[in-house]
Amino acid sequence: MRRAVDAGRLRDDFRAYDFALITRGAIADMRGAGGWHRHVQLLLEGIRGPEG
């Protein structure tokens, strides 16, 4: 994660705890036909850094 933050690929305030929250949220949304894909996409777009 540190390298991704340093490279500008992740927000500089992103932490390991945030990753745990994201994965829990995606797993909780795995019911139905592909809803979790959208969930993960929205989350990834939100944590991208300026070079993301």
Rank of each mutant, 00 (worst) to 15 (best):
G8R: 01
A28N: 14
R38G: 08
G52I: 04
I27A: 15
D18I: 05
R2Q: 13
E45A: 07
R3D: 07
D12N: 11
F19Q: 03
P50K: 09
W36C: 02
A20W: 10
L43K: 09
G52W: 06
L44Y: 10
R15S: 07
L21P: 09
D12V: 00
Y17P: 00
D18C: 09
Y17K: 13
V5G: 08
R2C: 04
Y17R: 15
R48G: 00
L43E: 02
R24I: 08
G52H: 01
A20R: 09
H39F: 15
E45F: 13
I47C: 03
G49F: 04
G32Q: 01
R15D: 09
F14A: 10
V40D: 03
H39K: 11
R48V: 05
L42C: 06
L42F: 13
A4N: 06
F14H: 08
M30G: 10
R9C: 05
D6S: 13
I22R: 10
I27S: 10
L42Y: 13
G32T: 08
A4V: 06
R2T: 14
A7P: 00
A4K: 03
G35C: 03
A28M: 13
V5K: 14
D29A: 15
R11T: 02
F19L: 09
P50W: 02
G32W: 03
F19E: 04
D13V: 03
A20C: 07
R48K: 14
P50Y: 06
F19V: 11
I22F: 11
Y17Q: 12
R9N: 05
T23C: 07
I27P: 00
A28D: 13
R24S: 11
V40A: 08
R31N: 12
L44S: 06
R24G: 13
G34P: 09
E51L: 07
T23I: 15
R24C: 00
A7Q: 11
G46F: 01
R11D: 06
R11K: 12
G32P: 07
L44K: 07
F14W: 05
R15G: 04
G52C: 01
G49S: 05
L44V: 07
D18V: 03
A7H: 05
R38M: 01
A20D: 04
